[in-house]
Design a protein around this nucleic acid. Structure first.
Lengths: 234, 234
DNA sequence: GTCTGTGAACGAATTCACAGCT
DNA sequence: AGCTGTGAATTCGTTCACAGAC
């Protein structure tokens, strides 16, 4: 009671507690369903590829064929963002790509910090795909004294206790957690104290954050367990 | 036309085309919603931890508090599997854990093969969490001649063309794809040809599989993009 | 009194189907 | 004719609320 309202964050992305969500800020743009946001990223992936191939125009049916997402679904998803297509013709690929990128906040790059430089953490730190899409990892942290000072992909592994101090300069808004389950909550608290507002959590445990902090969980073993379910009984 | 019915697999897990899904096989056990299956894995995570801590019994409210999932949701999810709790008391933790493990097909271990031993692939190959939970990676593949013969975590990196031959012995049913987007579909086809029935795809592209093959996509950049969306406008 | 299991109510998301623009 | 944008219909999932078990 009265200790600042912590909440276990379940589900893909959870802003731990927007009341029951009607509109945003002062404006009035209506709330967009989370499944739509997730598909947007898929559309972008597809559009970037079409752009690379030099395709100028695509219909909702074209996109549907390439992504496996229903064409009506695609059009409905886009309708949240205004009239982006041309009846009889389809969508201008580069224009749509730019528009969606903007809508997703991908116009300017995001700085991220990563905590936990074990196998997975080190691999992500070295993964170029993040930077290519505008997510730069700008600092690495690990509580293990053996790892401190180690250099991975040009970044020095530092003490997580330095997070608040260092992030005052770095201004990262996303934190990636790759520590064991047992230390995940401690790390979460340090990230939040450092001003991090969004967390990508790879630790296989439910973490708690205060209202306004966004959490997304990726549990790799869980993914395999779901596959196992669909494999069973045969 | 007529080339054996390929389908882009969108969404978390997709058995590419069960008609419109009423019941399964001959039995009659009713279809369980995919969100339920995904939460089951979360419950298991929680139950294993409770078990380690020596907690013998937990109510749906206890689980709700720990996982952030609504208590009624938990009870409804479990109700698909029969009466597992005791009114007035709650759930027997070890018993429920065992029952859910069984229901998810986690009773005996699964063999998996991993294709693509770049940063991410190598990290997953070395990750002990998979084996601990019954998913053993039993073979590694990479088309890059420089990587062939390399040893990672005790396994030799082999040519993906050997997949069908080798998997005749290995009998893996799950394949993990960690190759670049450009080669993902080729790898998918080789995995399926080798008898793999479920795929965990880390390549940021939509892959196509024939009916009956289960695909789950994990797109790490997409996860960051979704966070970006919720960070924008502030 | 406590807590489960579940029908019923509700709410959310997908898909249909068509009016209207090019 | 071709394709978008969208209200209406449908399907699906969640939450409520309570009867019944302990």
């Amino acid at each position: 009671m009265g200790d600042l309202e912590l909440k276990p964050a379940h589900g893909a992305a959870q802003d731990a507690g927007t009341p029951r969500g009607r509109r945003r800020g002062g404006g009035g743009a209506l709330r967009i369903p989370q499944p739509t946001i997730e598909r947007l990223s898929t559309y972008l992936q597809c559009l970037r590829q079409l752009e690379r191939t030099g395709v100028a125009t695509a219909s909702s049916a074209d996109i549907a064929e390439r992504t496996g997402i229903n064409a009506a679904q695609f059009r409905k998803d886009l309708s949240y963002f205004g009239d982006l297509g041309t009846p009889g013709l389809g969508y201008d690929v580069p224009k749509l790509q730019a528009h969606l990128s903007h809508a997703m906040g991908l116009r300017e790059p995001h700085n991220t910090v990563l905590v936990g430089t074990g196998n997975l953490g080190a691999a992500l730190a070295a993964y170029s795909g993040f930077r290519d899409r505008g997510f730069s990892i700008v600092a690495l942290f690990d509580a293990d004294p053996d790892k401190l000072g180690q250099v991975i992909n040009g970044l020095i592994v530092q003490d997580p206790d330095l997070l608040p101090k260092l992030n005052a300069d770095l201004r990262a808004d996303i934190g990636i957690i790759c520590v064991p389950a047992a230390s995940a909550q401690i790390v979460v608290d340090k990230l939040v104290a450092a001003g991090i507002r969004a967390i990508l959590n790879f630790a296989p445990i439910t973490i708690s954050v205060r209202t306004g902090i966004i959490v997304r969980n990726v549990d790799l073993t869980s993914e395999l367990e779901v596959l196992s379910y669909y494999l069973r009984a045969k």
